[in-house]
């Protein structure tokens, strides 16, 4: 990228940030919620991408981390008996839930990352099913009857605006983490693992450590989002957070935008949510059918996602013509 497009891109990001910062004051609560949902799902997709996109380990079970984050935060906030109306009361439960997810991910990382490809994907699906059943059936966790979380929203603030900013900040954080990884030695190592794990080993990449690190990091970021999402619901049962569609959305958004790129997951989420929640909001009876059709079409036409499509073909041809 030459200097001018880079500057343009940075300017574009700054403008987006500025618009994002003031947006809730100008749009309806519904649209604030839509953008809040975009922040959360873009964060989830980007977090999934750190493992699935960079190291090539496609997890179909990341919903497990999301649910653990939510229920972990709920259990801790109940145990602490935190008062409502104070955002600071979120800190300990969210940090505790993050730790729970980190320990869980680190424990299952070594055995489960010995599986490759589709076997890893299916094993992670199994993990998420096990977590779902446990949360649902162990009465101490309480997923079956549901749990309440005290609202941390300060008096006088609209809840959707409060969570809008939290999810926005988290998305920003996750993008920065993704960016830092992609540019670092670890990023190169993960890409090498994705491309050919045996060769990566032969070139001195400590593959086991890197895989475990990206697995835990990816899970932890998803867990944090889950914890905050739990707060935003106020009341949740197993089915509110341990949903198969959350785990699948992360993957679909990455594929649509461009898997393994920094901006692909964000772009894919924006495209899909815009189509489903804005364009199709007036056709609730057929919107799932149309969404499914769009996903199939996009995967047929652009198997490497929107960014992959433009990077690989158009962009190279364009650059070669320009030379």
């Amino acid at each position: 990228m030459t200097a001018t497009p880079r500057k343009l891109f940075l300017a574009f990001i700054v403008v987006l940030l500025a618009i994002g910062a003031v947006l809730p004051g100008y749009v309806s609560p519904y649209h604030t919620r839509v953008v809040m949902g975009f922040f959360m799902f873009a964060g989830l997709a980007s977090a999934w991408n750190i493992l699935g996109g960079f190291s090539g380990y496609w997890s179909f079970g990341h919903a497990a981390f999301f649910g653990m984050g939510a229920f972990g935060a709920a259990k801790i906030s109940t145990a602490l008996g935190a008062a409502a109306g104070s955002p600071a009361a979120m800190i300990l439960p969210v940090a505790g839930a993050t730790l729970i997810v980190a320990v869980f991910a680190a424990l299952i990382a070594y055995p489960i990352l010995r599986l490759r490809g589709i076997f890893f994907a299916i094993a992670m699906l199994g993990v998420s099913q096990v977590v779902t059943e446990l949360v649902n059936n162990v009465s101490w966790i309480g997923g079956g009857v549901g749990v309440f979380m005290p609202s941390p929203v300060p008096a006088g603030t609209r809840p959707e605006v409060f969570y809008y900013y939290i999810f926005g900040a988290l998305l920003l954080l996750i993008i920065l983490v993704t960016y830092a990884i992609r540019r670092s030695k670890i990023g190169y190592g993960l890409l090498a693992i994705r491309e050919d794990e045996d060769t990566a080993k032969m070139l001195g990449v400590p593959t086991e450590h890197y895989k475990i690190a990206s697995f835990v990091l990816s899970g932890v970021l998803v867990g944090i989002l889950g914890a905050v999402y739990g707060y935003s619901l106020g009341y949740m049962s197993t089915g509110s957070v341990l949903r198969l569609d959350i785990g699948l959305n992360m993957i679909v958004f990455c594929i649509i935008g461009g898997i393994g790129t920094i901006w692909g997951p964000v772009l894919g989420t924006a495209i899909m949510l815009f189509i489903t929640q804005v364009l199709l909001s007036g056709f609730l009876d057929i919107h799932l059918m149309i969404t499914g059709g769009i996903v199939v079409l996009m995967i047929l036409l652009m198997p490497s996602g929107v960014l992959g499509f433009f990077n690989a073909k158009r962009w190279i041809r364009f650059r070669e013509r320009a030379r």
Binding site: Y188, L191, D196, V205
Partner: peptide, 15 residues
């Protein structure tokens, strides 16, 4: 056994 989606320079940079 190249890393097919990476450029030659990126392949060698990993090493």
């Amino acid at each position: 056994k190249p890393f097919p989606a990476l450029t030659v320079l990126e392949n060698v940079t990993v090493g």
